[in-house]
């Protein structure tokens, strides 16, 4: 792991500056953005569905275990599942998982292009590679990941339902009563803010790792791993900062 933090942070900022320069041709960027939206969105739906349902189910079961026999009404399970998933679990867990799936894929893709001289070929043609390779990925991630997080939040609530209603911890109407209780729309705003910030982090960090990869398969593997590790650390750090600022 490279601890030359200032140097790498400077390079990261310069890369982001280059990535947001004016495109050579909007149509090509649009096409690439649509392709990336498909890759990130459609390609990640299955894993997001599976994880979300289980997160909701586990949250519901564990909360049911904790409040069983207490004075807290059982319908609170629905309320707790809804709020924990919207505020924390849906954006954070989804983005941590996406850092592993999408982030490592981006780092490997761009890194592979660097190693196979595709980036050099584009540079010689006069293409701003930082912009062409990174900007569409960032735009696609910022559009698609909040949608995935919203799907994740909804499915987690459904997962909670599936875990506690058929097992008769509480009735269907009680769970729905909990889900509808004390709803604060600001929490949804927080979820969207988190998903946007996390999407930017995981995409930009992964692209940065791939863009500066050196020669060799070991380096490519390292870049891919670093993309996930650094994205995850920064997502958790950002999670804490956002939680502090917005609550």
């Amino acid at each position: 792991m490279d601890f030359n933090l200032l140097y790498n942070f400077g390079r990261y900022l310069m890369l982001m500056n280059a990535a947001f320069s004016r495109p050579e041709k909007w149509r090509m960027y649009y096409k690439e953005t649509i392709r990336q939206m498909h890759d990130i969105g459609v390609g990640s739906v299955v894993i997001v569905v599976i994880i979300s349902v289980f997160i909701g189910a586990v949250t519901a079961v564990q909360f049911a275990y904790q409040i069983e026999g207490n004075l807290i009404p059982m319908w609170y399970i629905g309320y707790i599942v809804r709020d924990t998933t919207i505020i924390e679990l849906a954006p954070t867990i989804t983005c941590l998982v996406l850092a592993g799936k999408v982030g490592s894929n981006m780092a490997a893709e761009i890194g592979g292009m660097r190693q196979k001289e595709h980036i050099d070929a584009m540079e010689i043609m006069g293409v701003n590679t930082a912009s062409y390779l990174i900007m569409p990925k960032l735009i696609a991630a910022l559009l698609v990941i909040p949608m995935l997080v919203a799907i994740s939040a909804f499915l987690s609530v459904m997962g909670g339902y599936l875990a506690v209603v058929p097992t008769e911890y509480l009735s269907s109407s009680e769970y729905i009563q909990g889900v509808r209780a004390f709803f604060v729309s600001y929490n949804v705003f927080m979820m969207i803010v988190k998903s946007l910030v996390f999407a930017f982090i995981l995409t930009s960090v992964s692209c940065f790792q791939g863009y500066y990869v050196k020669q060799g398969s070991i380096e490519l593997g390292k870049a891919s791993t670093n993309a996930v590790v650094f994205s995850d650390i920064l997502i958790l750090l950002a999670d804490y900062v956002i939680a502090t600022l917005l609550t």
């Binding site: 050579e24 041709k25 149509r27 090509m28 292009m113 196979k116 001289e117 595709h118 050099d120 070929a121 010689i124 043609m125 006069g126 293409v127």
Partner: peptide, 29 residues
């Protein structure tokens, strides 16, 4: 735009067809 380069490993873009590879500079510029 006046420079063309052939790389040692050809450096063709894997995700594009032959036609898309060749037309890439035209599409872009």
């Amino acid at each position: 735009m006046q420079i063309g380069m052939l790389f040692q490993g050809s450096a063709l873009f894997d995700s594009m067809t032959v036609e898309e590879n060749i037309r890439f500079p035209m599409d872009m510029f």
